[in-house]
């Protein structure tokens, strides 16, 4: 009887300790997921900041060599990293004051959703149209895919029609 009295707490200790370990392992897993999601979000914030600073070096550091841009989001022929760099030059020449403001950003595992507003002034040639001095404000929602700390994919839907209207390249009602 005395023996049982001594053994019982040990036995209980063993069971509780086991449960604790399982719970802790599940919690650790969740914490790792949350930490990874935070890192992925931070990477996208850094990338958007690099756009605003026009810092190509930081931007390059965020992108995977196999990086692809899909505009619109289901484009059959995405831009490669090389094509993206060329396109970036065109945009920044036409709109040197390009600014992106993230309105919303959230993440699930390796995918990050960003809603942003873009504002700029057309100070150079764009789509055959000479500098107009027009101010534009355009909204977009994107999904980024991240792997091993680099951006692999950027899928964009933006208010392109609104942009064309603001630049006077399209008239409503036609």
């Amino acid at each position: 009887m005395k023996k049982a009295f001594i053994l019982l707490p040990f036995f209980l200790f063993f069971i509780v300790g086991c449960q604790y370990k399982e719970g802790q392992a599940a919690l650790d897993q969740m914490e790792t997921k949350a930490a990874l999601e935070q890192q992925n979000k931070d990477l996208i914030v850094k990338y958007i900041q690099a756009w605003n600073n026009q810092d190509m070096e930081v931007m390059d550091g965020c992108l995977d060599p196999d990086f692809k841009v899909y505009i619109p989001s289901s484009a059959e022929e995405p831009m490669s990293l090389e094509q993206f760099r060329e396109w970036l030059k065109v945009i920044l020449t036409a709109f040197p004051d390009s600014h992106y403001e993230a309105e919303d950003i959230f993440c699930e595992r390796n995918r990050i959703c960003v809603r942003w507003t873009y504002s700029a002034t057309q100070q150079g040639e764009y789509m055959g149209m000479p500098a107009s001095g027009r101010k534009v404000s355009v909204s977009a929602i994107e999904i980024f895919r991240v792997g091993n700390g680099k951006i692999l994919e950027e899928r964009t839907e933006m208010d392109a029609l609104g942009l064309m209207q603001q630049l006077g390249l399209v008239t409503l009602g036609k």
């Binding site: 977009a140 999904i143 899928r155 839907e157």
Partner: peptide, 25 residues
């Protein structure tokens, strides 16, 4: 067509739907 949307859900109901779609295409 294609689009990316953001929904907001409160108490089991959708309160908000924000849409960007390829209207131009």
């Amino acid at each position: 067509g294609s689009a990316i949307e953001i929904y907001r859900v409160v108490n089991g109901k959708i309160t908000e739907e924000r849409v960007e779609s390829d209207t131009q295409g």
